[in-house]
Amino acid sequence: MRLWTDPPHRSPRPTRTFVSLTGPPSNIGDALIRRAQLEWARGTSDELVVYVGDAPDAWLAQVGAPEDATVLRSKQSVRRWLWMLATSPRRPVLVFEAGEVPLDRGNTLRELVFLAETLMVRLKRGVVVRPPRGIRAPTNPAVWLHARAAQLSQFALWRDAASARTVGGNRIVPDIGFAAGVRPGNPWEDRDELIVSLRGTRPHPGTVWIDAIRTTAEAEGLRIRTVVQVREDEERARKLAEQLGGVFEAWGDTDAVVQEEQLRERYAGARLVISDRMHVLILAALSGAVPVELVPHPTRKIAEAFATVGLRDISVDAASHDANSMVGLLRTQLGRAAEVRLRVRQAEQRLAATEAEVRATIKAARA
């Protein structure tokens, strides 16, 4: 006699999360924000698919890619990325890159591809996340395409109001670098350094600037140190140390993960960090140092991103000041330590709440 049995249950097809994690291992700031966006995606699906472009193995360690992730490398793997996205089970998750987004005419084709990816995921009733971003060189039709893709995404986040306005966005949150973790650092009275880290590709800040930094350090009893957070800035740091009478700390052959940790320890012992690199200033602020952009003719990027977290007047145009007024401005900034600590803690909390919202949205989409 044949007994009736229930039909076997079909196992659901495994879910997938796609994350783009390209970037140069020579830039610790890029690794910082890629690692933070990966944290938003980690554990949201059965399978994690990451695209890292031409990045070497060292980059995977920098961003903290899990060993069980499916890693797609080189531009030749873009087709596989698109195929996996198109054939993925329903309700996939797609996380774009945080940071700066160039939207000049040369990026029109790329934006068209990104719009197509967004459409694919939404048609599969999935979730699209665009972490905090800032727009550079906005030009149509790239801007129009980007705006359409952002409108189709459940999360299109902007790190400054100007970028949001460019594409009609309305969600402004702190740069995702502020999620790297607040550290108490050394007590204020034990901090004895003024740290400088400038871009090597911009003009030298000039002798008046040199005089102002040296005078400020002497007046505050601080030792000057130049550090390197982006490899291409190393020679600039070396020369500035000579001119400032400070200590030069090379990157050299140090592993990038170790270099990042050493930099954070340096920022933890500094009262003031001067840079035109945004993520130098963010890491400095997270470690309790006062961040200042003091260079001739600064761009609006740093000022606008820090304004989002409530820290205004962080950026100063050195070309508009003589040495005495720069010294006065820097000494005034040193009085903002408590404000910096408060604002970065609030920024960290806002990003944590945003991540929780992203995860809740993904969970609801798959319920």
Rank of each mutant, 00 (worst) to 15 (best):
R341W: 02
A58D: 14
E67H: 10
R10K: 15
L294W: 15
V227H: 09
G29D: 02
V247E: 11
P89R: 03
A69D: 06
A61R: 10
D255A: 11
V93F: 03
S287Q: 11
L119M: 13
P25C: 05
D57Q: 05
R42P: 01
E189Y: 08
S88P: 01
A137G: 06
A303Y: 08
G310H: 15
L351H: 01
E189R: 15
A270C: 06
V50M: 02
A156Q: 05
P56D: 14
V19E: 04
V208H: 03
L283R: 12
R159A: 08
A323R: 13
A142H: 08
P12I: 02
P8V: 15
L294R: 06
R300D: 10
I176C: 01
G64T: 04
M326P: 06
R42L: 10
E355C: 15
A307V: 01
S275G: 06
G252D: 08
G181K: 07
I33Q: 06
I28L: 14
Q243C: 06
I172A: 10
G169W: 11
L294Y: 12
V208C: 08
P66A: 05
P298K: 11
S77W: 04
L283C: 01
R171A: 15
L119Q: 04
G252V: 12
L109F: 10
W209R: 06
A319G: 02
D46F: 12
T207C: 03
R341K: 15
R350K: 15
R79L: 14
I176K: 04
A58C: 09
A347L: 05
I274K: 00
W158E: 04
A237W: 01
T215R: 15
A137D: 09
G200N: 00
V49Y: 00
P24G: 13
H321V: 02
P14C: 03
L334R: 13
D211A: 15
P298W: 07
L329K: 07
L286D: 04
G200S: 05
L109I: 07
